[in-house]
């Protein structure tokens, strides 16, 4: 399976993806400082508040997930290169599972790296320009690492939500991106609209939807995956 996942990477336009990742990381790592200084200074009250700010910012990687779905799934169908893979003596389910795992692992690792970079950058900027009140406590640090891992998993699963409908079935890039933007901003919209949603419950439901989308994609690739 790892070999098949490696082959998915080999087939991609690697330079463009690396460029995309670098841009995402650079933007996201400075966003908490930008928000505290320019938009909502309340998040600078403590490191605990700053950690709460980092979480929705990292949701940006749901959009990166959509970009990967576009290149790993939709482009392969549009360019018909998927027919090459399907003519190899490997079942479609296994081939598609490799695609899903590749996208998941990639989004998870990049989100994890982004969390780390954002945390470190914000801390260093705070040291230099004193943006956040106080110093990070041991609890703040352990909370940060726990949320870093749990939210990387959550973001990975949410990024898979459009995979089945807009990736495999409809193979439509624009709806895929719009869906990713909606998912990314969903919790902010509800905050702005003053709709009181339990964020843990929302994340749980979205994760279930993401897992179901991945499962259906692998399960139904034989039926919906004709070229």
């Amino acid at each position: 399976m790892f070999k098949l996942m490696k082959l998915e990477w080999g087939k991609l336009r690697q330079k463009s993806i690396i460029g995309e990742v670098v841009i995402y990381l650079l933007i996201v790592m400075f966003l908490p400082t930008f928000f505290i200084k320019m938009v909502i200074p309340d998040f600078g009250q403590s490191y605990a508040s700053m950690i709460e700010l980092i979480l929705p910012i990292q949701m940006g990687f749901v959009l990166f997930g959509a970009s990967l779905i576009n290149q790993v799934v939709i482009d392969e169908y549009k360019n018909k290169t998927i027919s090459l893979s399907f003519s190899y003596p490997i079942s479609r389910k296994k081939l598609f599972m490799a695609k899903v795992l590749f996208i998941s692992l990639f989004v998870f690792l990049i989100t994890l790296v982004s969390f780390l970079l954002t945390g470190i950058t914000t801390y260093l900027l705070d040291e230099a320009f004193s943006i956040i009140n106080g110093q990070p406590t041991g609890t703040d640090i352990s909370t940060f690492f726990i949320k870093m891992i749990s939210h990387s998993i959550i973001i990975t699963l949410i990024s898979l939500i459009p995979l089945f409908l807009f990736g495999l079935w409809k193979r439509a890039t624009i709806p895929l991106v719009l869906c990713a933007i909606f998912l990314m901003q969903f919790q902010n919209f509800s905050y702005l609209l003053k709709v009181n949603l339990n964020p843990d419950l929302v994340n749980f439901v979205l994760c279930i939807l993401g897992a179901a989308s991945a499962y259906l994609s692998i399960k139904l690739v034989d039926k919906l995956g004709d070229i």
Partner: peptide
């Protein structure tokens, strides 16, 4: 059908890997 953005050899290598 090929991965047009890859070289001829890269395409052949992907095929052999599969």
């Amino acid at each position: 059908i090929f991965f047009e953005h890859l070289t001829a050899m890269e395409n052949l290598m992907i095929h052999c890997e599969y």
